[in-house]
Design a protein around this nucleic acid. Structure first.
Lengths: 168, 168
DNA sequence: GTTATTGCAAATGATTTGCACAAGG
DNA sequence: CCTTGTGCAAATCATTTGCAATAAC
């Protein structure tokens, strides 16, 4: 877990007069020990599977901690077109990344592109605004699947029983 | 209402073996007689206010008709960071537009920019994908408000009691 | 007639909240 | 202590669905 996250969280906790609890710490640890996107329920499951009893916590606390981290700016809510809210723990390390979602297998790829950022800033300025935040999601087909008829991600997704993206 | 929408809808209805009903027609009319974005409830209210009895319909039918239009590709679900789903009726006329949301007053501006589209396509190709659809949302501050201390949109929003954007 | 459509009310499912108890500082 | 945090169960709220009645075609 990135030490700068820990520091920023402690700062936030102190400035708000909050307390340190094992449940909250375990949830924070679970979130930032992985780069994966997750839903509230994903996270709850992940924590439930932890054998150590001291890191268990209720659904309510999971939700409350997520809200806290979003408010602190350490966690971002992203739109993957799903019914549940999805969260992305990677914005502290790369504050300006975009998402590409594979239509075939649902895999999400994060990428940065300063040119895109710049063009969007210009577009905003042209409209008389100053861009504060931008969200780009590209939904795309896997070229591997199209050209070679197979894509490991798709196969893995099927094997692991992952939710495939909704048909639109 | 754009005649091409009417035509495409009729095509869709026929191809699926569906029927023509006054309720559905009234809802479709209500959606495409305006450029405004809306939630399911906005739309239901709009229809309720119609005096003519023959154009009334239940919430369930409103939801069902929205789903139908989304499935037909005539209506798009967009993410404005709200709890309810928001729909945009303008994608038939301008299939590749982006959204800029004013942080100050919540106003949503639609704009097109072929350069942005192109750059995003390139970014996708560089990652080994073929972009099918892209979603860009820019959240931005009103320069008028910043430079001149006032912005008509903000003032109008307050007067009309519109939901201001959530504080983040 | 046959099958899609509607309206109602009940179900669903993710998220939030009230409250009594537990536990940081 | 005093106040924040937790867990539970109940409440919310948008959206979906089962079902009986209605209306297209």
């Amino acid at each position: 877990m990135d030490p700068s996250i820990e520091k920023r969280l402690q700062q936030f906790i102190q400035s708000k007069g909050l307390r340190n609890t094992p449940q909250r710490n375990a949830i924070v640890e679970a979130i930032f020990s992985s780069d994966d996107h997750f839903t509230a329920d994903d996270l709850w499951e992940r924590i439930r599977k932890t054998k150590s009893l001291d890191s268990q916590s209720s659904r309510a606390t999971v939700y409350r901690t997520i809200s806290l981290l979003v408010e602190a700016g350490l966690l971002h809510e992203i739109d993957l077109g799903d019914d549940q809210k999805t969260y992305d723990p990677n914005f502290v390390d790369s504050p300006a990344h975009n998402h590409l979602v594979c239509i075939d297998c649902g895999k999400v790829i994060e990428f940065e592109d300063s040119h895109i950022q710049l063009m969007n800033d210009c577009a905003a300025r042209r409209l008389g605004f100053r861009a504060e935040r931008q969200t780009l999601k590209i939904e795309a087909c896997c070229e591997k699947l199209r050209l070679h008829g197979r894509c490991e991600n798709l196969i893995n997704a099927r094997i692991q029983g992952k939710r495939l993206p909704k048909r639109r």
